[in-house]
């Protein structure tokens, strides 16, 4: 684990996390404070990156938007991992009807393109972070189930599992103490992958007005609103675009790095 962070992508990721989570502890301007008189004001000592169309501090908004993107995506990935892995392991371990059933359910979810599924769910349950996390989780549960299931299938036949079984260990014990640690690698890679996908999906939903709710800032929504005023205020568009691209880029790079670390062959992948 430590090894994963001791790399350029890992350090960059840590830097972004620090930026998003530690910086707000300092007395930054309120990202929601409206000051219409100072709309479109350029950078100043009080507002390092300038102010947006409502005179809100751009830097604070970017930082808060990145934080909520990370929290929502991380939360969604965690929820999806817990549910998906549980289903996958139980299916792979117990087999039989429960396996067939749960895998078919996952197939049904996979029939929906992710953005479509998220849109349907967001209109069904309303937008906002409280629904975004379960909605995004729902989209990504199948991917965890598949990975967990496949991993269990490869592990379960192996000698050490049989050995523990012979020693009379209970099923939960076998699952948690023996199987889970052995399939942690692929799951961890999958987790980071899902975080990236969630960030992209969340920003897309927010861009369409179905994600994070105003007044809370979100990168997708900031990009959507700034498009209209691009000709006069290009910076208001480029700043959130850059923030989003850098966030996804670093997460992607970290993802690749993890894959590299956990891949036994250590050869393929960029």
């Amino acid at each position: 684990m430590k090894k994963a962070f001791k790399s350029p992508p890992g350090i960059l990721l840590l830097a972004i996390l620090a930026l998003a989570f530690i910086l707000p502890l300092f007395p930054l301007p309120d990202p929601l404070a409206i000051d219409v008189d100072a709309r479109y004001a350029g950078p100043s000592a009080a507002h390092l990156l300038g102010q947006d169309e409502y005179g809100r501090d751009l830097m604070s908004r970017l930082i808060h938007a990145m934080r909520s993107a990370i929290v929502i995506s991380g939360g969604a990935a965690l929820l999806a991992a817990i549910i998906g892995v549980t289903i996958g392991i139980v299916a792979g371990y117990v087999r039989g009807i429960s396996e067939a059933l749960s895998l078919r359910v996952m197939d049904v979810i996979l029939c929906f393109p992710p953005l479509l599924l998220a849109m349907l769910a967001a209109t069904l349950y309303g937008a906002g972070p409280k629904t975004l996390v379960p909605v995004l989780a729902l989209v990504f549960v199948p991917s965890f189930t598949r990975v967990a299931h496949a991993s269990v299938m490869t592990v379960r036949g192996q000698e050490y599992v049989d050995a523990v079984k012979l020693m009379g260990a209970s099923a939960p014990r076998i699952i948690f103490r023996t199987i889970l640690p052995n399939i942690a690698g692929p799951l961890f890679v999958q987790f980071s992958f899902v975080v990236v996908m969630s960030v992209v999906l969340e920003s897309g939903l927010s861009y369409l007005g179905l994600g994070v709710l105003p007044p809370e800032p979100s990168l997708g929504m900031m990009i959507g609103s700034a498009r209209a005023t691009f000709a006069d205020q290009p910076w208001l568009l480029f700043a959130p675009c850059m923030a989003l691209v850098v966030l996804v880029l670093v997460l992607n790079a970290f993802c690749d790095h993890l894959r590299h670390v956990f891949d036994p062959r250590n050869g393929s992948g960029a």
Binding site: G220, C241, L244, L249, L251, D256
Partner: peptide, 11 residues
């Protein structure tokens, strides 16, 4: 490729 993959389509 890493960069291209990281730019959301709407951006």
């Amino acid at each position: 490729a890493g960069t291209a993959q990281s730019i959301p389509v709407f951006v």
